[in-house]
Design a protein around this nucleic acid. Structure first.
Lengths: 249, 249
DNA sequence: CGGGAAGTTGACGGGTCTCAATGGCCGTGG
DNA sequence: CCACGGCCATTGAGACCCGTCAACTTCCCG
């Protein structure tokens, strides 16, 4: 998943993500603006907080490398993971909506994020309407992902939920070239999976083991391999939706 | 909830929603543009489809009056309601993200919607950056709502879910002046509630009855009255989050 | 080696689901 | 006018999926 380069900030024109086909190209002018928009970088360790659940950060973040997740908790500690974040994902916009932070964001692995100041967001909309539209697009896309998670948690059985999660993780990982030799990184603990799927830890474990014993997938060394993707997709009632090329800011 | 005015289109400068304090003011220039952006109006009966779950509409909609809901279904018919739509809510943006429609939108009551063509969306971003930002805001806000629903469905018990729904409906209804004499419109059937909360119809019924017998709320004539809002809020672990003034397009 | 986090497994209880039957309301048509 | 059918709400009984409790193992890192 890469490692942080201490001391030096990655210039946007050399951003390793842009060379991926997943991301739509940008003009030189736009790229130059994004470079000025990028205020700094944020390095976090695995398990570190990116946005605390209480309080405001007043900033936007794009995941540069590593994985993270958005979550919300009840006062007695029950936690729901809203979605997982991959490189290229934008976080922090929802803070514009509420006065307090509506959710927490935590790193799943060691990660690096590009930091953008909210104050310059207005310049972006005024000077580069296309980038403004791209931000809307990214927000709508994230909502689309959360919609899917809500369908999963609300209407799928435990096995179906786990199957869905496995497929989804692989799909997102593949989009950014993380499929190496048929396996993708899988840094989540079973507690993360349980919190994402609305299940208990114990039941998550049993369901995972059952699917693994059925030979549908294999989890080893924090990497995931789908052995029978077709069966998993049928089980989850999954069908791929073609996406437009994705903007990157 | 008002009734449709056959034959005549509501001019944006006379939009009955704008006089509500819930919505942020706009400049005259912006209002004039919104007027040209508004292509037509769409009238739907209760239960009618606004956006079919398959296929694309290629348009944006703002609810002018009435209620609706977004949903997604599995191939065997299981349905999850993603969120309820109130006047002022914007729908249709997510279609930009996928090639096919990611969700269906259905009217809950007789309703009227303002229709905007996607093609002119680009003009909006270029000529009126503030409106572009507003659209992002509305999208982020809807995601914030869906986030909350995901927490509810994933981590709250049946009673807690029902309590949460009741509070949420009242809050949204009050924001647009629908609180009359301590009651708000409640057009959903128990099947809608079940599909929104990820519960079965039978269990939804029993839970509703239990809370009602406890004297926490009263449902009558398709209107809802909260009798013990404090108890309901404690039960749901609800706490109000202050929102910024809301844009209206 | 020691200790804590993560994973695994069994037993048991309970919350929720499914099946089934009934009654109320209302629009339709005979 | 009333019979009828369909949708919605209500309620009971039983099954089952999933949660909780508890104990143990494995893994990892200091």
């Amino acid at each position: 998943m890469g490692s942080p380069m201490e001391g030096s900030i990655v210039p946007c024109r050399e951003c390793p993500l842009r060379s991926l086909r997943t991301f739509a190209p940008v003009s030189d002018r736009e790229l130059a603006f994004i470079q000025t928009f990028k205020q700094q970088e944020l390095d976090v360790r695995a398990g570190g907080a990116i946005i605390p659940e209480a309080g405001r950060s007043g900033q936007l973040y794009t995941v540069l490398f590593g994985m993270a997740f958005r979550y919300q908790t009840l006062s007695d500690g029950r936690r729901q993971i809203l979605n997982f974040l991959f490189p290229g994902d934008l976080v922090g916009l929802q803070e514009q909506v509420t006065v307090e932070s509506p959710h927490g964001v935590e790193a799943l692995t060691e990660a690096k994020l590009c930091v953008f100041p909210m104050e310059k967001l207005w310049d972006l909309y005024r000077q580069f309407p296309q980038l403004g539209y791209d931000i809307t697009w990214l927000t709508a896309h994230e909502e689309y992902v959360v919609d899917g998670n809500l369908l999963t948690v609300g209407r799928r059985s435990a096995s179906e939920r786990v199957a869905m999660l496995l497929i989804h993780i692989v799909k997102r990982a593949e989009a950014i070239g993380w499929n190496v030799d048929g396996t993708v990184p899988f840094p989540m603990t079973q507690q993360h999976i349980a919190d994402a799927l609305g299940l208990s830890l114990v039941h998550t474990n049993k369901t995972l083991r059952r699917l693994e014993k059925l030979g549908l997938h294999k989890l080893e060394n924090n990497r995931l391999r789908l052995l029978k993707p077709t069966v998993l997709k049928r089980m989850a009632d999954y069908y791929a939706v073609p996406l437009r090329p994705r903007p990157l800011i």
